[in-house]
Design a protein around this nucleic acid. Structure first.
Length: 267
DNA sequence: ATGGTCGCTAAGCGA
């Protein structure tokens, strides 16, 4: 049974403040599924009604007050929902859903990996130690990942040379240090996942999903990083296509500092 | 050059 499923991922940095542009995105791009990160919203206050009105009737949320938070919005019903408390800290950083796909099902993991603070040394920076522990736990879990599976989200690591505006300038900057880049590769390989964005954009081509709020003119400076990712198991990756980071959306009014990424899965 | 800007929630923290 042939099928097609479009999956978007977007760190929106407050779902309530960003509701107008999330609605605009859903109307203009109409993915089957949208995975949000940094919703910063307790579940009781999640604006589910606004999304249901746009046809996203199935909503899996894992939120908390003020920080983190993920949500998966879907036109297609969920066969299963699961949430894992990575590192046992009570942070809302993961929700998994199973969706009907091609006569069977696909598992979709939505992750928000800890940013890791400023100092890339786990001995003096507990936030960086947490980030590394979180990634190691991801690797342990994903070794046994169901097939087919897709992982999307803000992984807060830009692993390759051209995932950042300057490899040399960022070697000691959290998100692009060798320890994180090597660990993210090990996590991906532990579950035999394919980096779908890089299947479509050559390794030597710059590719970003995030631009800091701090730049005077983010687009002109273009000091971006590829922090958001789409991974798929090899059975899906062979037919997956990516609309790489929708950069224009970074320039919408009151934007998130991340751009969304859309992937089409076909089987 | 070691800031610069956001969003939460009510001064400072996290990103």
């Amino acid at each position: 049974m042939s099928d097609r499923l479009t999956v978007a991922t977007w760190n929106i940095n407050s779902v309530r403040l960003r509701l107008p542009i999330v609605e605009r995105f859903l109307i203009e791009h109409a993915p089957d599924v949208l995975c949000l990160q940094e919703t910063k919203c307790p579940d009781a206050n999640f604006p589910a009604g606004a999304f249901r009105k746009l046809g996203y009737e199935h909503i899996a949320i894992n939120g908390q007050k003020g920080y983190h938070g993920v949500a998966t919005l879907s036109k297609r019903p969920f066969l299963r929902e699961a949430r894992r408390d990575y590192c046992g800290k009570g942070d809302s950083r993961h929700v998994a859903t199973d969706l009907a796909f091609a006569g069977s099902s696909v598992t979709l993991h939505n992750f928000y990996v800890p940013a890791g603070g400023d100092e890339p040394d786990p001995d003096i920076n507990a936030k960086f130690a947490h980030k590394l522990a979180f990634l190691r736990e991801m690797g342990d879990e994903l070794t046994a990942a169901a097939r087919p599976s897709v992982i999307v989200g803000d992984l807060n690591v830009a692993p390759y040379e051209h995932d950042v505006w300057s490899h040399k300038a960022l070697l000691k900057v959290v998100s692009h240090t060798p320890i994180e880049c090597d660990l993210l590769e090990a996590v991906r390989e532990a579950g035999s996942f394919v980096d779908v964005m890089r299947r479509f954009v050559p390794m030597e081509e710059k590719l970003y999903t995030w631009w800091s709020y701090r730049a005077k003119d983010w687009s002109a400076a273009d000091k971006g990083r590829r922090l958001d990712h789409v991974w798929a198991t090899s059975d899906l990756a062979s037919t997956a296509t990516v609309i790489a980071a929708l950069r224009d959306i970074r320039g919408w009014p009151q934007p998130s500092d991340h751009a969304p990424v859309i992937t089409t899965l076909e089987a």
